[in-house]
Structures are given as structure tokens and as C-alpha cells.
Write a protein that binds this DNA or RNA. Structure first.
Length: 225
DNA sequence: AGCACA
């Protein structure tokens, strides 16, 4: 079996394509960041590309470690199939100066190209991506009800019943200071998330409170008491 | 199964 030469980008397939794209990326990020710096994650929901993702690492060593550890690992109910990508990601090309944003990477008719483009812009995500900044967040935040004082432990409620620890870890690991997710025994729709400091917990809370993991259930992220 | 990104 002719194998693919090492590449600092991994090609991942067999992903559950029912999962909201942003959630998927967060989860992959959470899994991958353990092996090195992650430069970018690309996932498309086009006909051709759904169920697949590209994770660009800092270097080949990190990618190789992630490939070894993550291949076959179950996430969202499916074992990941991880290989090296065939080509260089744009992010890495940009980094090494070889990026030319014109050169066609595929031979495709104009109509095919248009079809792909249309599909890419189609909005099939269930809910919104987490706001990118705290400023964005102010618009979506619920100015509510917690009189609990800030803490390094977050208490998550209103989760979809069948949520996995993987998903939550994927989401919360993206924010600095993340330590662990702890299930609440007997309560499938709640969890604790531990951060190193009050500030890091607070930052994660600011972004993720109200984030939808399912269409109708914005999760609530509060400080634990 | 399916190797993209502006």
C-alpha cells in the first residue's frame, strides 16, 4: 500500500457530518492541540467535502504524533480516519512564502466551480458559531441571573442529553487555562469544567455562554459555587 | 467514499 508522504497537515475523514461545523472544528482543535500548535482547521460541508477536515499543524512532528494517536479514535460516534494531507495548506504556504493565491489547484469547469461555491455558502449549520470576540459576545449575551461569584470552575447546564465529554472538551479546550471536563453523575445534561484560574474560566464563560450545541438548546455557562 | 483553503 503506497503511503502518503508526511505532511504537516492531516486529512481526517469519517467525521460525523450531522455535527455543526463549528462544533466539529472546536472538537478537533481540542483533540489536536495536545500534539502541537494548530495553525488552522478547514472543514467544508460541500457534497464532496463533508465528513472530512484538514488540520494544519506547526510542523510535521506534531502532525505525525497526532496522526498516530488520533487515528481510530472515536469522536461523535465514529472512529477517525487520519492520514497526511496530499498537499500543503494555504496557511503553511503563507508562512513559508510559497503561497500564490491564484494558481488553480484543480481542473474544474466554471459551472462545477460555481456549484461548489454555492454549496459552501449554504447555511446548514444548526446554530451560530461562538462569537469571535467579547465585543461580539455582548450582543448575544444574556444579562442574567447569576449572583454566583466568579470561580475557576464553570457549571454547564442545558446541554443536549446525549452530549459526549469529547464534544465539551473540544469546545472548552480552545480557551486558555482549560484543565478538565467533569460529568455530573446522573445528569447527562450538565457538566463541570475546570480552568486554571478565575480569569481563564471567566473568559471561556463569556464566549461560550449561550452557545448552541443543538438547534434549540443554548447551553448555560455559569460559575460554579 | 470523498484531498480544501482566497
Amino acid at each position: 500500500m503506497a503511503s502518503i508522504p508526511p505532511n504537516q497537515t492531516l486529512y481526517i475523514r469519517n467525521l460525523n457530518d450531522k455535527i455543526q461545523k463549528e462544533v466539529l472544528k472546536h472538537a478537533l482543535y481540542g483533540l489536536c492541540i495536545a500534539y502541537g500548535r494548530v495553525l488552522d482547521i478547514v472543514a467544508l460541508k460541500t457534497m464532496k467535502m463533508r465528513g472530512q477536515a484538514f488540520v494544519a499543524f506547526d510542523d510535521i512532528t506534531a502532525a505525525t504524533a497526532a496522526l498516530r494517536q488520533l487515528n481510530g479514535r472515536r469522536i461523535f460516534g465514529r472512529p477517525l480516519q487520519v492520514e497526511y494531507a496530499l498537499s500543503k495548506s494555504n496557511v503553511v504556504a503563507q508562512n513559508d512564502g510559497s503561497y500564490r493565491f491564484n494558481e488553480p489547484h484543480k481542473h474544474m469547469s466554471a459551472v462545477e466551480r460555481k456549484r461548489i461555491t454555492d454549496e459552501s455558502s449554504e447555511e446548514d449549520d444548526i446554530g451560530p458559531a461562538p462569537p469571535a470576540t467579547n465585543e461580539d459576545y455582548e450582543a448575544t449575551r444574556d444579562n442574567g441571573d447569576d449572583e454566583v461569584s466568579p470561580s475557576s470552575t464553570l457549571f454547564i447546564t442545558n446541554l443536549p442529553d446525549n452530549i459526549s465529554i469529547d464534544v465539551l472538551a473540544g469546545l472548552f479546550q480552545k480557551y486558555a487555562g482549560f484543565q478538565e471536563v467533569r460529568p455530573v453523575p446522573g445528569k447527562r445534561n450538565m457538566a463541570f469544567v475546570e480552568y486554571a484560574t478565575v480569569d481563564s474560566a471567566s473568559a471561556a464563560r463569556n464566549v461560550l455562554n449561550g452557545f448552541k450545541l443543538s438547534a434549540d438548546q443554548p447551553m448555560r455557562v455559569a460559575f460554579s459555587r
